[in-house]
Amino acid sequence: MSIRIAIAQCAPALGAVKRNLDMHDKWIARAKAAGARLVIFPELSLTGYYLKDLAADVACAADDPQLARIAEASRDIDISAGFVERSADAKLHIAQGHWSGGKLVHVHRKVYLPTYGIFDDGRYFGPGDRFETYQWAGGTTGVAICEDLWHVSTPYLYAAAGATIVLAPSASPGRGVAEGGDLGTAESCRLMDRFYASYLTVYIVYVNRVGHEDGIAFWGGSEIVAPDGTVAARAPEFDEDLLIGEIDPELVARERARNPLLRDEREDIVLRNIAGRLGLPFDRRD
């Protein structure tokens, strides 16, 4: 039985949480009407991305009353949305929550904070420190927020932990306009999505936003890439779009039967190599 999901390729306003909550309501209603079991919003969908000093102004705890509207809306449809989380010890994190049945069921804090070129995450946010999978109706899932996905180890760790779906909410600025192909960023992202999906035999659900912040354009192009490497659905570039697609657990099973790379994966060897290089003790169980 495949599960229908929706990607809200939207344009959040920068620092205007109330307005963004209203915007979320509209996309949630559309996703519900389309029969989706889950609607996924891009990175920092409730706050906007290039926040700078606004980060502290819009931050809230994961159980803050202003997010209760999202929780309430999740009684009918699961919702994955982005916000600035203020931790109990007052650190700011780029976070993606998953709400289901009226409750927050999982939060991922962005681990890799790009702080180079046009990115300045590390100046304003603290890093997350874990990649944890969680369950929902669609199956075992891991969240990789934007730069998290660019690190090969992220989807690897999720796949090794049993994930069949990697949700990748992003705020990816479009750049690279040389002739002879697609937008440079789009090409890199598509290569990455297809490679991870095929070689880890998982669904990659890439959710990018559109619109501008201070002259920088987010390019959209959200896509669902299936474990056989095919593009199951893809949204247009630069325009808003509600992208509907299906997650088929049986396709995962078929691909893993045909291509049992994950079954044969030697995590113990990976761990021994890394532990040895870092001078950490490693208990062999054999």
Binding site: A13, G15, L51, K52, H212, D214
Partner: peptide, 11 residues
């Protein structure tokens, strides 16, 4: 170190 985006709360 007063660093706000220009598109601060813009539509």
């Amino acid at each position: 170190d007063f660093l706000y985006p220009r598109d601060w709360e813009a539509d």
